[in-house]
Simulated scan of single mutants.
Amino acid sequence: MATEESQDIVPTLSLHQRILGDIEQNILTGRWPPGHKVPSEQQLAEDYACSRMTVNKVLTQLAQAGLVQRRRRVGSVVLPQRAQSAILEIYDIREEVKALRRGYRYEILSRSLREADKAERRLMDIDARQKIADITCLHFAGGKPFCLEQRLINLSTVPEAAEEEFKTLSPGPWLLDHVPWSAAEHTIAARGADDLAARHLGLVPGAPVMVVERQTWRLEKSVTRVRLTYPGESHILTARFTPAQAQ
């Protein structure tokens, strides 16, 4: 049965974060294409009822991340985004199971909101006392355990995740629908199942498993870190890619 804990304090977006998120989403979704002129500092300050200093800090951060170029007397314009090539895409486990023509369901095993510990702060590059959502769920294919998902979500980047119970949509696709990401990192390893994975995947401890660890960022702030554990004999990774373009 799923368990859930709640906190009295739910993180809220600062005005800086809201302006940054709005502009970033316009760029990453293509709503503002390369060459699009970003509204002036004065216009943004009026739109958000804030100081020009706040807007200036936002545009400076976007420029440092390579999303806009600031030009004197012209203003800020959207830059072309460099193509990202990766062996693995960020995929929806539900669609992966459906592609195998097997019935899919998932179950939340635990969900809590808590402060990140020292190791988690180091891995996700977050501050002390930062709140995270800690979610464990199990994905099934044809009634059999298919993947154990252990996920941490940075609530300073995704505060709305504090209220989300993930009853109808698992955390992965929910994040893809709600939070644009700008960078991702994968690590893939063949390992022996630990006690938690063995118990939920129906394996003996030490049995071969494939572990995919992934972290995503929104600009320079971490969004989520997830560990996906698959029974070793039942999962295959296939990727198609082309040679990188000469620069």
Rank of each mutant, 00 (worst) to 15 (best):
R102A: 10
R102M: 13
R102K: 15
G103R: 15
Y104V: 03
Y104A: 04
R105T: 13
Y106K: 12
E107D: 11
L109C: 02
L109T: 09
S110W: 07
S110H: 12
L113A: 02
L113C: 07
R114N: 04
R114P: 12
E115M: 10
E115P: 12
A116N: 04
A116L: 03
A116I: 06
D117R: 06
D117E: 01
K118E: 13
A119F: 10
E120R: 05
R122W: 05
R122E: 10
L123Q: 11
D125T: 08
A128D: 04
R129K: 03
Q130E: 09
K131V: 02
I132A: 00
A133Q: 04
A133D: 00
T136G: 00
C137L: 11
C137T: 06
L138C: 01
L138R: 00
H139L: 03
H139M: 04
F140G: 01
A141F: 00
G142R: 02
K144N: 12
K144V: 12
P145L: 01
F146H: 12
F146P: 00
F146R: 11
C147R: 10
C147V: 08
E149F: 07
E149N: 15
Q150R: 15
R151H: 11
R151T: 15
R151D: 04
L152Q: 08
N154R: 12
L155Q: 11
S156C: 13
T157I: 06
P159G: 01
E160C: 10
A161G: 07
A161I: 07
E163G: 14
E163P: 13
E164Y: 01
E165D: 13
E165W: 13
F166Y: 12
K167H: 14
T168A: 08
L169K: 13
S170T: 14
S170K: 05
P171T: 08
P171H: 03
G172L: 09
P173T: 02
W174I: 04
W174S: 05
W174R: 08
L175W: 02
L175R: 02
D177V: 10
D177L: 14
H178K: 14
V179R: 14
P180Q: 04
W181R: 14
S182G: 14
S182F: 06
A184Y: 14
A184T: 11
A184E: 12
E185K: 15
E185W: 14
E185I: 15
H186C: 06
T187S: 15
R191A: 13
G192M: 03
A193E: 08
D194W: 05
L196E: 15
A197F: 07
A198Q: 00
A198D: 04
R199L: 13
H200V: 05
H200I: 08
L201R: 09
L203E: 05
L203I: 08
L203Y: 07
V204N: 13
G206I: 01
G206H: 01
G206C: 05
A207H: 11
P208D: 05
V209K: 01
V211K: 13
E213G: 08
E213L: 07
Q215H: 05
T216A: 04
R218D: 04
R218S: 07
L219T: 03
